[in-house]
Design a protein around this nucleic acid. Structure first.
Length: 257
DNA sequence: ATGACTCGCAACGCGAGA
């Protein structure tokens, strides 16, 4: 069995005590982190290595940044999403570990939709689709996990009407995500849970956590070779209820050996 | 209740997040 979890930590430095507690308690074999918000050289590598993890980071100053943590070596790193050499945003890191190809993905937010941010999001999603297609062709167990910044269905948001003009909920966004899924990926949580309104993100504002006003936007996409081994998957709400919490909470899956 | 966010930053309010 191997347990893989994804978590947008909203700054690894601000979240270090929370992240270390979670790594000790939940102890995933592999963790995909997003929004570490630091240069790779400033990532708190030693503290995490002390817990038995190998660490790989694609960082940038202040914004974005993704990392992979694994209890086995991380090999054959792919740093950055192919398809645009001018894109300097740190949003993608892929590696092989535990015999799995895993990617930590921080998909662009895309708001407001009447700015250049929205077409950047859609173009990024098309690049991800192309990468996902190439990975599927390898016919290996592959997990593309992260903060997709996509609300795929009405029951993945507490108030669909309130998100009508939001980049996460636009028809173009949902279509682009559907194109990736339809290549042949299994979205792990929905494969095992049919309950509506199960969220992975709650805004800091307006008592969203207390009211359960959330979004389900953090996903684990499994290739057929990984999906065949899917044993369990869930959302770990505990970290969101801790002091100084990230606004996202981890989503994890467990694969048979 | 007339109200309540959090991060980084050569910061001291702003941009970004979703």
């Amino acid at each position: 069995m191997v347990t893989i979890a994804t978590w947008n930590v909203n700054s690894i430095k601000a979240r270090l005590p929370n992240a270390l507690d979670w790594l000790k308690d939940f102890a995933p074999d592999v963790a995909l982190l997003q929004e570490v918000k630091c240069l790779a050289e400033n990532f708190p590598r030693l503290e995490i290595e002390d817990l038995g993890y190998n660490v790989a980071v694609v960082g940038q100053k202040s914004y974005n940044g993704v990392a992979l943590l694994s209890k086995e070596p991380l090999e054959d790193l792919q740093e950055g999403l192919p398809g645009d050499d001018d894109d300097e945003q740190a949003r993608y890191l892929e590696a092989t570990t535990f015999g799995l190809r895993v990617a930590s993905i921080y998909l662009p937010n895309g708001n407001p939709i009447d700015t250049e941010k929205f077409p950047y999001k859609l173009a990024w999603m098309e690049r991800l689709r192309a990468r996902a297609e190439a990975l599927l062709a390898l016919e290996e167990p592959t997990i593309l996990g992260g903060d997709y910044n996509v609300i795929q269905n009405d029951d993945d948001v507490y108030d669909p009407k309130a998100f009508a003009d939001d980049a996460l909920f636009q028809p173009e966004t949902r279509a682009a995500f559907r194109r990736i899924l339809n290549l042949g990926f299994t979205e792990a949580y929905r494969a095992l849970h049919h309950e509506a309104h199960r969220y992975s993100f709650w805004d800091y504002q307006g008592g969203a956590w207390q009211k359960d006003n959330g979004l389900r936007i953090d996903h684990l996409l499994l290739s057929p070779q990984a999906a065949d081994r899917l044993e369990d998957c869930d959302i770990d709400r505990k970290p969101r209820g801790q002091p100084k919490a990230s606004d996202h909470t981890p989503v994890w899956c467990r694969l048979l050996a």
